[in-house]
């Protein structure tokens, strides 16, 4: 197999068979898991941070899943939370099982635009998965960026994902990692509260910073408000949107938000493009 190009390598509607190489449980009950995969044949396109693939479980259904890392050979890694029929069925798969994959699709996080600036990443829940490749990209060229803040909020300590990596990031003087949970436990010594409070503590130059936010919509909206209050212009705040997907190619309209198709124009958007949608959803 070889890895090339940035566009889908094959017929975009036809899933290619990929074999699961490794499954890693991210939380104790296995509800969140990470797949490392390889294509059974042919070429795989290299995805950019923020893009997603459509993963197809034969006979069950297809779901949009973001790239949560790129393996050393350039193949995409996916981190999945089991919430419904397809993702729960995926939870039962193991190494050697084969699923269909089409992609990569969609827009990417503006990593290059963050060069020379402070960078604030705000993640809520499994929203850390689509942002993780940004951290990898930044660490690979750390000198190109200013201060880098990673603010991560989860429901409780047991819901934190990528724990080993979080420890590495915490120990890395090149990153300012701040983690908080909504509900602490007796042995939790970290922060309790919402992710916006981590942003409110500052530690970046708002006038020269860029922000990337991923999580539940209400979390993204409040994070954008906090980032703006801290001096980051709305057009330098980017959010990743989630809508139910079918074609992923801008044909079916399933993923439409106002004039935008999340699959084609997104999922990563500048905040001002999505602000009206956030307001409508909050009504």
């Amino acid at each position: 197999m070889s890895v090339s190009a940035a566009e889908p390598a094959h017929e975009p509607m036809a899933p290619e068979p990929w074999r699961i190489r490794q499954v890693r449980r991210e939380v104790a009950d296995g509800e969140v898991f990470t797949w490392t995969m390889e294509p059974l044949s042919g070429e795989a396109a290299v995805a950019r941070p923020g893009q997603f693939n459509m993963l197809y479980l034969f006979g069950v259904g297809e779901v949009a899943i973001s790239i949560s890392a790129l393996a050393d050979d350039g193949t995409p890694v996916h981190t999945i939370r089991a919430v419904g029929s397809v993702t729960r069925a995926m939870q039962d798969l193991g190494p050697g099982d084969v699923v269909g994959l089409r992609g990569p699709f969609g827009s990417a996080w503006p990593v290059a635009a963050a060069e020379g600036r402070d960078l604030v990443l705000a993640a809520g829940g499994i929203g850390l998965a689509p942002l993780r490749p940004v951290v990898h990209a930044v660490l690979a060229r750390r000198e190109a960026f200013g201060r880098v803040l990673v603010c991560y909020g989860a429901r409780s300590p047991r819901d934190l994902i990528f724990r080993d990596e979080l420890e590495q990031w915490r120990a890395n003087p090149d990153l300012d990692l701040r983690v908080t949970v909504d509900r602490g436990t007796a042995d939790w010594k970290g922060d309790v509260g919402v992710v916006t409070q981590l942003i409110d503590r500052g530690g970046f130059d708002g006038r020269n910073a860029i922000a990337m936010v991923c999580g539940p919509e209400v979390m993204m909206r409040f994070s954008a408000l906090s980032l703006h209050r801290r001096g980051i212009a709305p057009e330098r705040i980017h959010v990743s949107m989630e809508r139910s997907m079918r074609c992923a190619l801008g044909f079916c309209g399933h993923c439409q938000i106002g004039p935008h198709f999340v699959c084609r124009d997104g999922p990563v958007f500048p905040y001002p493009a999505m602000e009206p949608a956030f307001r409508v959803n909050e009504l």
Binding site: R81, V83, D200, V218, E242
Partner: peptide, 24 residues
């Protein structure tokens, strides 16, 4: 007001089962 908003957000249980996908 900031703390009230934060407390409101915290009480919504936004990462719970009611909010799935990337929100999870």
């Amino acid at each position: 007001v900031e703390r009230l908003q934060a407390a409101r957000l915290q009480s919504l249980d936004i990462y719970g089962d009611a909010d799935v996908g990337l929100g999870g």
